[in-house]
């Protein structure tokens, strides 16, 4: 059974104290995109930087 956060009044009250009027938008906002992190212990970070054009740090 899917959980509807709106059913947890205690939670909604706490969210309202943090987010105010943005609470409903927060509850309906899309989840973070999945992501990966290249393991520089096994993949060459210099080659990666050249390919992506992004500079570390």
């Amino acid at each position: 059974m899917p959980i509807n956060p709106s059913d947890n009044r205690e939670l909604i009250n706490h969210l309202r104290s943090i987010l105010g009027r943005r609470t409903e938008t927060f509850l309906s906002c899309p989840p973070e995109k999945p992501a990966i992190r290249v393991n520089t212990l096994k993949c060459d970070p210099v080659a990666l930087q050249k390919k992506t054009g992004y500079v570390a740090g």
């Binding site: 995109k33 992501a35 990966i36 290249v38 393991n39 520089t40 970070p45």
Partner: peptide, 10 residues
């Protein structure tokens, strides 16, 4: 990812 050259959003 703009803050991590090793990170990629899929």
């Amino acid at each position: 990812l703009f803050f991590n050259p090793s990170g990629f959003a899929i």
